[in-house]
């Protein structure tokens, strides 16, 4: 019981102190750029969890989900193909490294040329930008499948689709998840950026609108909303990852303690 309380105290202590500090420091703030936290929170609840939730937050999240899902499917399939063949890997690795090194937001102007300014463009921007870390990590994970494990599978006649399902994908999954995690943060960034350029709704669009019209409390609240979204997605990701990689974390612990 005391253990739980202690953990709770440790987890909540600093955030409470920080929030309280912000609250009191800004309480009587007359600084135009730093409105009182109470105003920001009010705006967060009234605006962002009010009408803007359906109007802006949901469309953003849907585009994010579509783009990310597209990237995941394409990159993992391509990654398996590329990772399996030494020759293909050799041919494509520098090309992929180059594409990965391009800061994804610079693609927004180009994709606007190609795909216009609709939802399609935003989904493609998100997908194209976040696919490289996923793709390269999948390639690396597939390449590094343990040789003994691979021999074992061969001697038991595990080939083709079964090999992919029972050996290659699970073996590469720690790497793939590392890529997926990086890809997710890139995807969130691109969700916002793609809405800054050409959009009529969305979180990024609304925050910048607020900023341009000098609705300062709403701008701060929008930033909090973005932070909250990032945090929640990271949390969700962690839950999925912990489920899928339970074996891996267990294996690592076992190796470290031995």
């Amino acid at each position: 019981m005391t253990g739980v309380l202690r953990r709770l105290g440790l987890a909540l202590g600093l955030p409470i102190v920080l929030l309280a500090a912000w609250w009191f420091a800004s309480a009587n703030s007359t600084d135009f750029f730093f409105p009182p936290l109470s105003e920001i929170l009010q705006s967060l609840v009234e605006e962002w969890f009010g009408p803007r939730l359906a109007a802006d937050v949901v469309p953003s999240v849907l585009r994010l989900a579509a783009g990310y899902a597209l990237a995941v499917v394409v990159s993992i399939s391509l990654g398996v193909l590329i990772g399996t063949s030494r020759t293909v890997r050799g041919l494509l690795e520098p090309v992929l490294e180059f594409f990965r090194a391009i800061p994804p937001p610079v693609l927004v102007p180009i994709f606007m040329l190609l795909f216009g300014i609709g939802d399609g463009m935003k989904v493609v921007v998100i997908a194209f930008g976040c696919m490289w870390p996923i793709l390269l990590n999948t390639v690396e994970g597939v390449r590094a499948v343990d040789t003994v494990l691979s021999d074992t599978a061969r001697t038991y006649g595990i080939t083709g689709a079964a090999r992919l399902r029972t050996l290659v994908l699970p073996a590469a999954s720690p790497q793939i998840f590392a890529g997926l995690r990086q890809g997710l943060s890139v995807a969130i960034i691109l969700m916002v950026i793609s809405e800054l350029f050409a959009a009529s709704n969305g979180l990024g669009f609304a925050v910048v609108q607020a900023q341009r019209s000098f609705a300062i409390a709403e701008t701060w609240a929008g930033m909090l909303m973005l932070g909250l979204l990032g945090f929640l997605l990271a949390l969700l990701f962690r839950v999925v990852e912990n489920r899928q990689l339970r074996w891996y974390h267990g294996l690592r612990r076992a190796q470290r303690s031995s």
Binding site: D146, V148, L149, D151, T152, R154, T155, Y156, G157, T166, L167, P170, A171, S173, W247, Y248, L251
Partner: peptide, 21 residues
């Protein structure tokens, strides 16, 4: 290629079992 009627036990037990199973 690996014949169907044969099984192999490798030295590296830690690497021949599927850790995710």
């Amino acid at each position: 290629g690996p014949p169907p009627g044969m099984a192999v036990v490798f030295q590296e037990y830690g690497r021949s079992l599927f850790p995710w199973m």
